[in-house]
Design a protein around this nucleic acid. Structure first.
Lengths: 241, 241
DNA sequence: TTTATTTTCTAATCCATGTTACGAACATAA
DNA sequence: TTATGTTCGTAACATGGATTAGAAAATAAA
């Protein structure tokens, strides 16, 4: 369940058992509903078990910026356990299944087990690294590269879900949401996506996306998966893609 | 020294003593030098003691995006202790004084003292929150608001350094660097800054910046300091600014 | 089915920001 | 001082992406 922690730290069997034995309840959210809102205070941690969700913030002028996409296994609101109120919203993209863990349970586990605490820190740091790459994407790449980069990231992250990078996947986002994620208008996302399709770099069938030329596409997207830190510390690099 | 940790967790006297007793060596960097480079592996943690620095990344087309500004007290490369190689560069903005702490010392302290581990997590999360706000800034605000927002953030963060928000401060960045931080051209930064000055919202004397109308300026900047999480969890909100 | 609603797609026009270019002001070093 | 290099300031022009407005297609609801 949550043992993708193991990517960054080595967990003992006891550690794994502790994580799997965490008291939790499961809840279901339908598509488009809010899991957390800007300003919320809470005393439990939630984890996304299945479905997709996204973090976002609204500016004073009512514009939305999507901050990240959550995929199964991601921790949704660890932050609120360590800081004060939430500073952004989390909303579902598809129907979602969510585990709720009481704050105390998680914190005592973290203080009892160094490996768990380390995993929490590492996971937070990977998130931060992804945020940084998004900044680069939004701030310094043109529309075409930006969109391509987002699609690549999705492909790469779904790898953990068993869909190898370059393989077709279902994109659970509308063009409007894509635009809000990369700082573009809906109209321009459409134009740009059309451009990629016309050039044979992307093939689209409803929400299904395929990349006929994955290698070339990654170059076009200025994509290098290093920032996702998918490998364990100490593992030899080995350029998987 | 590093006990701005205390903002987010309550540290016992022993905790404080432990932090202050950390083995470390001090190094000096001149302005413009690299403290860490994309790809670096390291076995020690560094903390900025005085001066300013910034994180940045370079795109495939050679464009630079500045990711954050480091001010005294900030931890520079905690990440590399928990993940693999660095995924971005850190470069000084002014001459800097830096403490280097061996990885083991820090990690044993973190695993011995829950409060310290919590402080590390909280600090990482504040960084992440700032990244998110930058994404909003870069992705969804216009040039004027964007620049104003960055100046506000600087003012607010310097508060910890003893310069109250709204008070004049020295901006340690060139217009080119400002541009790379907010995703604009040097030329446009100049235009925009000039606009703010003409409208009486900013007063500039060399690198010194003053805000004659701080309250109005914050509105113009769409700035709300909540995302900086400057207050301790549990502390009553109390709108300081 | 039919109707309602959301999402996609396209075209025409506009404008905020990028580009290029260069002189002035300031630093820093020799 | 005089050289040399940054940084700042501005003007003229180019353009990528925003805006506005709808029509077509897909999806959901009745």
């Amino acid at each position: 369940m949550v043992n993708k922690f193991a990517i960054h730290v080595s967990l003992s069997d006891l550690d794994r058992a502790a994580v799997q034995g965490l008291p939790h309840s499961v809840r279901y959210f339908e598509s488009g509903s809010y899991i957390a809102r800007d300003g919320d205070l809470t005393d439990h941690c939630t984890v996304l078990l299945s479905g997709f969700a996204f973090r976002h913030k609204i500016t004073g002028q009512g514009l939305r910026q999507i901050l990240s996409i959550l995929i199964p296994g991601d921790i949704i609101n660890l932050q609120q356990l360590y800081l004060d109120a939430a500073d952004h919203n989390v909303q579902t993209l598809t129907p979602c299944k969510i585990a709720t863990i009481p704050q105390v349970a998680l914190r005592t586990m973290a203080s009892d087990r160094t490996a768990i605490a380390d995993a929490l820190i590492a996971s937070t740091m990977v998130d931060a690294s992804i945020y940084r790459e998004w900044m680069v994407n939004i701030g310094r790449r043109d529309a075409r590269t930006r969109l391509a980069h987002l699609l690549c990231e999705f492909a790469a992250r779904l790898d953990v879900q068993g869909i190898a990078p370059g393989q077709p996947y279902e994109l659970p986002m509308t063009q409007e949401q894509l635009g809000d994620a990369i700082g573009l208008t809906t109209v321009h996302v459409n134009r740009t996506l059309r451009g990629l399709i016309k050039d044979g770099l992307v093939f689209q069938n409803k929400r299904g996306i395929t990349f006929p030329e994955w290698e070339i596409f990654m170059v076009e997207a200025d994509f290098n998966s290093r920032y996702l830190h998918l490998r364990e510390r100490g593992t030899p690099p080995g350029y998987s893609f």
